[in-house]
Design a protein around this nucleic acid. Structure first.
Length: 437
RNA sequence: CGGAGCGUAGCGCAGCCUGGUAGCGCAUCUGCUUUGGGAGCAGAGGGCCGCAGGUUCAAAUCCUGCCGCUCCGACCA
């Protein structure tokens, strides 16, 4: 992509409304524009990141055996009356009526709709287990939206739902999602720590929050410091096996959110306990028959009886992750994207646009990178070097290839790794191979 | 939902107290010079001063109401 043809409105100064670093950087990098409180438009650069994250989530859900569907954003109040949640959900639910006076709502979550789908089609234990998910915009009318996309009112969420014959089977599904979550966050370059969490009014007796550590996180968390070095070996998961022993091994180290932590009973000695702040990026629940019973989602059992299915729900805040990743990965100059979610892999910087030699060298390498399928953003603007460096550091692409008149003459380019700042002068071909490899 | 603050050019801000027809920096456009970490000079364009009402000869400025946004707290299946 040539930057002169792209739409990437970077800002030199920070808009006053942005207080936390991820929000500031997202606005400055031209990723989002606030439409109203807690509601954002996604501009090209931000949208690319959002899609990258969404795709990783999708692939790991598929790998775990869940099937993607797409449910509507607008739901009928009737289903919520049936589950008993319509009157209890409160003002966070955006309610309205259609032209016929029917009560409608903008979905804050989808247990009702998915259960309705399930109960209509699935009648036999032979069809279990099943896991369905979708990635859809949600709306929760938060009293006080803040932190940019991390605590918006409208947000993109992956929510999955599992259906099993009994509690024992449901725990196997829960375990699959548990590992899928670890794999998902691992692929994004994040250290996400599963923490025992309060199940809240949703009920059930098994719940974990997945928290990534960041100084500006809104949750206070406690965990054993060895968690930081624990390897989840995410690439190597057999979803056909019983994953519970593996999870037990992984979760031997203590980790709990503020609500669940009690200093008096905490098993970790003080010197090993890490008190930190974090961003909740995922939350999983097993809640038994809390929805299947009132909505009467039942299957026939082997002995000819009827049983309400045991369900779990599993959420990942896709749009929140964009902010969360920045919170966890940035420096003074700007964002440092993990490779897997970067909007482009390489920034190709022509330091002297209009100079025949540098133009030729940059154009040539741009062509080769594009040919090789590398996502490259080519800064072909007629700006001074300093402005280009500042913008490219700000948007934080993993690699920068810098071509100036000196290098063009000597037949070398400068390859810079954004995360470390390491730079070396090498031949264009060598740089090409490095960013491909 | 309690408390506090802010709305003036695309962004950051001054002007308001003490009323007199709107200014600075950056950005944008033109020209020249410059060119490896947000250049220099010269010129130019861009404003229902959040909205509505009131006071006044006169309102960005004073008064009232409303709207929007932000921060602290509570909240966050």
């Amino acid at each position: 992509m040539r930057l002169t043809r792209y739409f990437m409105p970077t800002l030199k100064e920070t808009p006053t409304e942005a207080q936390i670093v991820s929000h500031r950087l997202m606005l400055r990098a031209g990723m989002v524009r606030q439409a109203s409180a807690g509601i954002y438009s996604w501009l090209p650069l931000g949208f690319r990141v959002l899609k990258k994250i969404e795709q990783i989530v999708r692939e790991e859900q598929d790998r775990a055996g869940a099937h993607e569907v797409l449910m509507p954003t607008v739901q009928s109040a009737d289903l919520w009356r049936e589950s008993g949640r319509y009157d209890h959900y409160g003002k966070e639910m955006l309610r309205f009526t259609d032209r016929h006076g029917r009560d409608m709502l903008y979905g804050p979550t989808n247990e009702e709709v998915i259960t309705d789908i399930f109960r209509f089609y699935v009648k036999s234990y032979r069809d279990l287990p099943k896991m369905l998910y979708h990635i859809q915009w949600k709306f929760r009318d938060e009293v006080r939206p803040r932190f940019g996309v991390m605590r918006g009112r409208e947000f993109l969420m992956k929510d999955a739902y599992s259906f099993d014959l009994d509690a024992e089977a449901a725990r196997l599904s829960y375990a699959k999602m548990f590992m899928a979550y670890l794999a998902t966050f691992d692929r994004m370059g994040l250290k996400a720590i599963p923490m025992r969490a309060d199940t809240g009014p949703i009920g059930g007796d098994l719940s974990h929050e997945f928290i990534i550590l960041a100084e500006t996180g809104e949750s206070e968390v406690y965990c054993h410091k060895d968690w930081l070095n624990q390897d989840v070996d995410a690439a190597n998961i057999d979803y056909e096996s019983d994953l519970r022993p593996r999870i037990d091994a992984l979760t031997q180290l203590y980790a709990a959110t503020d609500e669940m932590h009690d200093a008096a009973t905490c098993p970790v000695p003080a010197e090993d306990l890490l008190m930190a702040r974090g961003v909740e990026v995922g939350h999983i629940f097993y809640f038994g028959t809390n929805y299947s019973a009132p909505l009467n989602a039942a299957v026939q059992t082997p002995d000819g009886g009827q049983a309400h299915v045991h369900m779990g729900s599993y959420g990942i805040g896709v749009s929140r992750l964009v902010g969360g990743i920045i919170e966890a990965s940035h420096d003074e100059a700007g964002i440092i994207w993990p490779d897997a979610v970067a909007p482009f892999k390489v920034a190709l910087i022509n330091l002297r646009q209009g100079d025949a030699a540098t133009d030729a060298a940059a154009e040539s390498l741009y062509g080769k990178l594009s040919q090789a399928g590398v996502e490259v953003l080519y800064d072909d603007r007629e700006e001074r070097a300093g402005a280009k460096f500042a913008d490219m550091d700000l948007i934080g692409l993993p690699w920068q290839i810098i071509i100036g008149p000196r290098g063009a003459k000597a037949g070398v380019v400068e390859l810079k790794r954004r995360a470390t700042g390491d730079r070396e002068e090498i031949a264009p071909e060598a740089a090409l191979q490095r960013v491909i490899g």
